[in-house]
Design a protein around this nucleic acid. Structure first.
Length: 302
DNA sequence: ATCCAGGAGTCCG
DNA sequence: CGGACTCATGGA
């Protein structure tokens, strides 16, 4: 992961077949997103690196990703950490050639991979945030999900205003662990979702649940099982979170309504494919299911 | 009112 | 295990 230091900004080398623009399309897919902003071909967001609380602008004017430090000048070790974070954020370590090779032989993926070439999974670095977001998004419209997340973030996250714009850190487990269900119900969380999220916050806070422990798990099935052991985390949430947070590329949220809608569009049908149909279609995608899902979602953002 | 939305838990054979 | 039923909440 080679990077170049310029003190007030860093540059990160990028592999072939990486489209920053496609990453921005994904990140900018909803105007209701509260954790970052896409503006003028750049991504603006807050980044917590140990004790360093950074506001960064990420752009790609040339062959390298460029991360500008807007509110501080972090030390060299923290800049190195930022380079690593950005590398992971855009999944730059994945050798995507194998996926494209597989896609060329697949009637569904072929067109998608040609059209959206360079699109890589945009990751979330924080497992707790990913779990909360997935649980929030269960069985409700995305618009309402964004509203719920914004309320949670505005109420329990940490706000920083820079350049007249608000930047938030997602609520920590420590911030949510002491809550009672009613505290989230007033934000229009259902009783069950409130309970799930608070319980998971307590697991993190108590140290029984640690992202690093799960990241060490080599086996996808074991990781999925560990996530599903949490109340409120079913197959869809587990796969969604693995896709967004972990390296395992087998993750495939097959029950995802968006995925089904995307397949309906790509197949040019007037109804959504059944789970068994999707299973059959996804057979050739073995080992790259997460990328297949991410590319399919992309058709929803056009 | 009715159906849907980036599901999960539970129970049953 | 796979299926059926229940729960839960706002939006269109």
């Amino acid at each position: 992961m080679p990077w170049h230091d310029h003190r007030q900004f860093i540059e990160v080398d990028t592999p072939r077949d990486f489209s920053f623009v496609e990453g921005l399309v994904y990140l900018g897919r909803s105007s209701l997103e509260c954790m970052h902003r896409v503006k003028g071909g750049a991504l603006y967001r807050r980044l917590r690196i140990d004790t360093w609380d950074l506001v960064v602008k990420i752009e790609m004017p040339g062959e390298r990703l460029c991360v500008h430090f807007l509110n501080a000048t972090p030390p060299q070790w923290a800049r190195a950490e930022v380079a690593h974070t950005v590398w992971a954020m855009f999944d730059l370590g994945v050798e995507i050639d194998a996926f494209y090779e597989l896609a060329e032989a697949d009637p569904i993926l072929r067109g998608l991979c040609r059209k959206y070439r360079g699109l890589r999974i945009v990751k979330m670095e924080d497992l707790f945030e990913a779990l909360c977001w997935a649980i929030i998004g269960q069985q409700i419209t995305l618009g309402f999900a964004y509203t719920m997340k914004r309320r949670l973030v505005e109420t329990y996250g940490q706000r920083l205003v820079f350049g007249g714009e608000p930047y938030y850190l997602f609520p920590t487990p420590q911030a949510l662990a002491p809550l009672a269900e009613e505290d989230l119900r007033v934000l229009q969380f259902s009783r069950s979702k409130a309970g799930y999220i608070i319980e998971i916050a307590r697991r993190f806070d108590g140290g029984q649940l640690r992202q690093t422990d799960l990241a060490d798990l080599e086996d996808y099935q074991e990781l999925k099982a560990r996530l599903m052991a949490l109340k409120g985390v079913g197959p869809w949430t587990a796969d969604y979170v693995i896709l967004k947070c972990f390296r395992h590329r087998q993750a495939f949220p097959i029950a995802d309504v968006g995925l089904q809608r995307a397949l309906q569009i790509v197949l040019g049908r007037d109804n959504k494919p059944s789970l068994s149909e999707i299973r059959a279609l996804a057979k050739p995608w073995t080992g790259w299911e997460a990328y297949a899902a991410f590319y399919l979602w992309r058709v929803l953002y056009d």
